[in-house]
Amino acid sequence: MDKSSSQRFDPLTRTWWLKHRFFKLYMVREATVLPLVFFILCLLAGFVSLLQGADSWQGWVAFMGSPIVLALNLLALAASLFHAATFFVLFPRVMPLRIAGHRLPDNMIVAGQWAGVLAVALLFFWLLGRA
């Protein structure tokens, strides 16, 4: 990219991305990190509460159950799945895999990554499904 390339573009307005569905979807994907940050901050508070003791931990669990927090974390769950869906299709494009000279079909790579998500969820179920 040469130094004068910026002069070929008009300055963007703040709302340029509202003009096309593709750009709106792009901005939605960018915004998936907002509920993610909320969940991470909640989780960090949980870490601190574990350091403080049992009462503090119970208080944190109750806090996580308050309606607004729960709703935002459900949004974070949806956002993480949306992010995963958009992220997994990039993998075969960025790094096509070849096995014995044959290109692995894109949908197999995507399915493999979803299998990873499922495996992690099953690990959690195995760890937490019984007391």
Binding site: L70, L77, S80, H83, F87, Q113, G116, V117, F124
Partner: peptide, 20 residues
């Protein structure tokens, strides 16, 4: 991004939703 896609769904589901 890999962690967000692979680990976070399960963590949010179990710690952020099912636990509370």
């Amino acid at each position: 991004g890999v962690c967000f896609a692979v680990f976070l769904p399960a963590v949010i589901l179990f710690v952020g939703v099912l636990l509370p």
